[in-house]
Write a protein that binds this DNA or RNA. Structure first.
Lengths: 209, 209
DNA sequence: GTCTATACATGGATAGAC
DNA sequence: GTCTATCCATGTATAGAC
């Protein structure tokens, strides 16, 4: 039973959305503790009680922004399904797709990264471990597949998982601290080339570049 | 012309040192913005003016703590000198030594990591890039050496540097988020085994485990 | 749902005595 | 160099009208 638009004082149902956008921008650029509620509401062009109405505290809007953006990452991980392609292709495609998503949301990645690995900064706890573990397990699963198919060598599954994850990590991390160097997808492929060469059995190895 | 100890009101020259210790502990556990001056002085068992006397602001004691701890890392990097050993041994030893230092000061590493890669959190700027770049260049230099000696393959120096750095990064990062899993030096060696195998020329490659 | 106005705690920093 | 006492800006959050 909503009133017709014409009778509402201000048809600003977008206020909540603007708040989320503003909050993401500020939290990612300044960090949780360094961002004040006043800054958020000014950026969203609303007043303080609007924020406290829709969320109920600074922690509330923070957790909500994280929840909304993490859903994107979860969704991408869901789409992963083992295929008949060579295992290294699958690993490379998976890493590449997640990497593209990271590039698109590099600011959020920066925030999540600093909270996952760094001190809590006064921010309420948020569970990133589950998503991170799922990503690691996805890679490990593809590597197990490659080992079972005798594409990858046997006996160092953990080392291979770490090497792949490391190649992925180092590239997006370099991108965060040196955006001007344009470290991108090609750098990821170069690093993965080295790693794959170290993973493949001698018999089936062949150059791909 | 100092007075003899007996005549000083309180021989507490350790106050400054206690402040630095307390500041490191709090900044690393809570982050810069989330740590208050009151907390620091209470932990150091002094009063506020003592902090403002020795340093001159919150930013001052923060920068001083960072400066003091970064000197350790710089010192370790200085000790690196190319030797006649195989290049992969040298890379492994270098990574291992830096890794040991990281483990010893894992809390400081956590703070530096989150500030390097994350939002500034209201903290004054501090130049970590120089030290980080030097570390990367050290690895790249050893890899160039290996290539020149025909131990490593030619044509993907950048990929090899990234792969090595990635193996190093991923291991200490995992250690930070999952200390209970005991990810340690052995995991680093497993990952590097994969990477080295991908770097070595086929002719000279041989198992080392 | 959105406003004005305000409560109330905590923040960083300093004055001035010793 | 260290204290007590205090200043003042900023912080989060809310009351109460519309």
């Amino acid at each position: 039973m909503e009133k017709p638009l014409s009778q509402r004082p201000a048809p600003d149902t977008a206020a909540r959305e603007r708040l989320v956008m503003a909050a993401i921008g500020l939290f990612t650029r300044k960090g949780y503790a360094a961002t004040s509620v006043r800054e958020i509401v000014e950026a969203a062009r609303v007043t303080k009680p609007v924020l406290y109405y829709h969320f109920k505290s600074k922690e509330g809007i923070y957790l909500e922004t994280l929840r909304e953006t993490m859903e994107e990452f979860e969704a991408l991980l869901e789409t992963l399904a083992p295929s008949a392609e060579p295992a290294d292709f699958q690993v490379q495609r998976f890493c590449g797709e997640v990497f593209e998503l990271f590039l698109k949301r590099i600011d959020v990645v920066r925030l999540v990264h600093s909270i996952m690995y760094g001190p809590p900064q006064g921010a309420p706890p948020f569970d990133f471990h589950a998503a991170h573990d799922r990503m690691v397990e996805s890679i490990r699963g593809l590597i197990r597949l490659g080992v079972a198919r005798r594409e990858f060598r046997d006996g160092n599954e953990e080392g291979m998982t770490l090497a792949v994850l490391g190649a992925f990590n180092v590239v997006y991390e370099l991108r965060m601290i040196h955006p001007e160097r344009g470290v991108g997808r090609d750098a990821l492929d170069w690093a993965l080339d080295v790693v794959f060469r170290g993973m493949k059995r001698a018999e089936i190895r062949q150059e791909r570049r």
